[in-house]
Simulated assay, not measured.
Amino acid sequence: MTDLLNPVERTALLTAALRAAETRRDDRLYSDPYAADLAGESGPGLLEEVRTATFPPGRSRTLPSTPDYNAIRTRFFDDHLQECAAPAEMTQIVLAPAGMDSRAYRMDWPDHVRYFEVDRPAVLAHKAERLGDARPRVRHRTVAADLTGRDWEFMLRDAGYDPSLPSTWLLEGLLYYVPEADAHRILERVADLMAPGSRIVADLVNAAALTLPHMHDLLEVFAGWGCPWLFGSDEPEALFARHGFEVVAAQPGEPGADFGRWPDPVPPRTVADVRRVFFVHGTRS
Rank of each mutant, 00 (worst) to 15 (best):
A36P: 01
T168D: 06
M107F: 14
R130H: 15
P44R: 04
V118W: 03
L124G: 11
P179S: 08
H243Q: 09
L174N: 01
A35S: 03
A12L: 11
G45E: 15
R114P: 05
R150Q: 12
H184T: 08
F116H: 01
R276M: 05
R135M: 08
L218R: 13
P252D: 04
C227Y: 07
L230S: 14
A144S: 13
M155V: 05
I186R: 04
A223G: 10
V118Q: 03
N70E: 15
A35E: 03
N6Y: 10
E235F: 10
D234W: 06
A96I: 03
L5I: 14
D37V: 02
V123S: 07
R284I: 13
L147E: 02
A181T: 14
L174I: 04
E117V: 03
H281V: 07
D108W: 08
M90E: 07
V143L: 06
H140E: 01
I72E: 13
P33M: 11
V271Y: 11
F76D: 07
Q92S: 04
P7W: 03
D133A: 13
E83K: 10
C227T: 10
L14G: 08
D162I: 03
P64L: 08
N6C: 10
P252H: 02
A35R: 01
T148I: 12
P179M: 10
L239Y: 12
D182W: 00
R189M: 10
R242D: 11
L171Q: 02
T2F: 08
F55M: 06
D158N: 12
A98H: 05
L131T: 02
F116M: 00
G282W: 11
A183F: 09
